[in-house]
Amino acid sequence: MSIITPSIRVQATDFDLQAEITALTAGRKNIGAVVTFTGLCRDEQGALSALELEHYPGMAEAEMLRIGELAIERFSLLGLTAIHRYGKILPGGNIVLVIAAAPHRQAAFDGANFVMDFLKTSAPFWKKEHAADGRQGDWIAAKDTDDTARDKWR
């Protein structure tokens, strides 16, 4: 059995969903299901002008790789891509992308869900709000519901 390696990227620039799906599935004939998750920046009913994403270079990639490898093993995924952006992101802009490929849909859904739940609670990224009136806002607080979502996989 060939070893599947997650494709992990941490970048300031945007990503192209279709290009990433194509890159993951090109030339493959054993993939029967591809699930993608894209996280976008909300404007919170007009209150926000942007989100600032800070990350821990090196550790961010390492944690995403570790989470990706766990998902591949647990759900027998045939491919996995995870891309997380950093820097200033405007409302409507992309923040994160997860693509999970598997022979059947359930593993692909579960794999993408698992990666997002762990990414939110253990990948070193932090969001700061920029208010619509130009003031620099607060750092977003971590939510208990994110820990609960992660813990359901135990």
Partner: peptide
């Protein structure tokens, strides 16, 4: 050294220690 650590873990051998709030990415 860029891996999560608990508060009761020894820091012996650490080259780099990151200190930060709970993460809010994704």
């Amino acid at each position: 050294n860029q891996e999560h650590a608990e508060h009761d873990e020894p820091i012996a051998g650490a080259r780099e220690i990151g200190i930060f709030p709970p993460m809010t990415g994704g």
